[in-house]
């Protein structure tokens, strides 16, 4: 086997204008030109998108699942951030 590993790229696709690019998978490719071509062949065979981003997987910094609680739990306990926390009389109507 070759010692030169072909790099991994993460693929993001915009299904149509007006929507954000969304992660859909990954491909191996030697450079960004071939990564785009491979992503088109692998992930858009049935009109799945109108635009593709490819990003070297090694360029992504991810949060650590071990820190999930300290990162994300506080937002669950702050119910006053949500509109339903506040009581408005029905007579006021929709707000």
């Amino acid at each position: 086997m070759s010692k030169n590993l072909i790099p991994l790229w993460e693929v993001f696709i915009r299904p149509r204008n007006g929507l954000a690019h969304k992660h859909c998978g990954s491909v191996h490719a030697a450079d960004e030109v071939m990564a785009l071509q491979a992503a088109r062949d692998v992930y858009t065979r049935r009109g799945e998108g109108t635009s593709i981003w490819v990003v070297p997987s090694s360029a992504i910094t991810a949060s650590d699942p071990e820190n999930k609680d300290e990162n994300f739990e506080p937002s669950l306990s702050k119910v006053y951030r949500h509109p339903t926390f506040y009581e408005i009389p029905d007579d006021v109507g929709h707000m």
Partner: peptide
């Protein structure tokens, strides 16, 4: 062509578990 695509989705899924494409091919 779809079958080739399916193989690639699946190799990518396996790679998230720490095995390389080259190891699987080997």
């Amino acid at each position: 062509q779809d079958e080739g695509g399916h193989g690639l989705y699946l190799y990518s899924a396996a790679e998230t578990l720490g095995v390389s494409r080259e190891e699987m091919t080997e």
